[in-house]
Computed example of a mutant assay.
Amino acid sequence: MKLLLIEDDPAMRSTLQRTFERRGVQVVACGDGARALDRWRASVPDVVLLDLSLPGMDGLSVLEKARADGQRTPVLILTARGAVGDRILGLNTGADDYLAKPFDLDELEARVRALARRAAPSAEIQGDGFAGPSEFCGLRCDSASGAIYFGDTVMELSPREAALLRALLARPGHAVAKERLFELVFPGESDVQYEAIEVVAYRLRKKLAATGAQLVTLRGLGYLLKAQG
């Protein structure tokens, strides 16, 4: 796994880089907001660990520009700004997770690895007997990157939306249990409420409106992907 660490405090940056490298993670470190986007594009990370208080360009601006540029890498914001309003602002800007300082290193690593797993392409839905992501109604999943295309265009999906759509593409026309989808979309996240999968499904359904596919809720069963009309 490759981690892009964007942190302006030299001591914190050095500590985090050493910690993750000892645990088998390849780390690209950057301490300047103005250079962060270039490092992001060049390093092709699996996860970005982003501080908000950066010189040159603050972390939220870096995140906003990266998302506008089409960068879909999962982002965990790591900052001393722990107020609810700050967390909401960060998540609405495009972050996937948020951890306030001070923090526990083991929890930080667990959250980073959970984001990486969520964004990784699923080869199959284990135990269901169906092969991996297929092409359906103009939608297809790139097996190397995990990106989902509609025609020749990459869909702008959050990591959770992409994980849900990959699971449904694995067996279009067949119901996938909500419990199984929750495990795939929120792997190892015991603090997430079960109903959160409904929020992800709602957002994905709106993004599928312009495609030939429709996300259908089957009450008491789960969800399925079918052709519109």
Rank of each mutant, 00 (worst) to 15 (best):
V84F: 01
E156F: 01
A177L: 08
E161K: 07
F150A: 14
R180W: 03
E161T: 01
A119L: 08
R118K: 14
R160M: 06
R87Q: 00
L89K: 03
P159Q: 02
L115H: 11
D152I: 12
G90H: 00
S134L: 07
A80K: 07
D96T: 05
A177G: 13
P133S: 07
G132C: 10
F136H: 13
E135I: 08
S158Q: 02
D86P: 08
A147M: 12
E183N: 05
Y149H: 13
Y98S: 12
L165E: 05
A110R: 15
F150P: 08
G151I: 12
P159N: 04
I125L: 15
A177W: 01
G90M: 13
T93D: 10
I148P: 06
V84S: 01
G132H: 02
L164G: 08
P172C: 08
S145L: 03
G94Q: 05
F103M: 14
A100D: 11
A175R: 03
E107G: 10
E179R: 06
P159C: 00
A167L: 00
R111A: 14
L89E: 14
L105A: 15
A170W: 00
A95P: 09
L108G: 11
P159K: 03
R140D: 04
F186G: 02
A163P: 01
L139P: 10
G82P: 02
F182N: 06
R166E: 08
G90L: 12
F103R: 12
A175H: 04
L139M: 09
T153N: 11
R113P: 10
E161Y: 05
E135Q: 14
L184Y: 08
A144I: 05
S134T: 09
V176D: 12
S143C: 03
D104S: 14
A100P: 02
R140K: 04
L165A: 05
E156R: 15
P172V: 07
G188Q: 06
A119C: 12
F130P: 01
L157D: 09
G82C: 01
A114G: 14
A162V: 00
I148V: 13
G85R: 03
R166F: 01
Y98T: 08
S134P: 00
K178L: 12
P187S: 05
S143T: 03
I125E: 10
D142K: 01
R117K: 15
A116S: 13
E107P: 11
L184M: 14
R111T: 14
E189I: 05
L184W: 04
A147T: 13
L168K: 10
T153A: 06
E189P: 02
E156V: 08
L105P: 13
L91Q: 06
E161H: 12
A163R: 00
K178Y: 11
L89F: 14
A123W: 03
M155T: 04
R166I: 06
L169E: 05
D86W: 07
I125D: 07
R118M: 15
V176E: 15
N92F: 02
L115F: 11
L157K: 00
P187I: 10
R113E: 11
G173M: 02
A144L: 04
E135Y: 05
L184T: 11
E124M: 02
A123K: 03
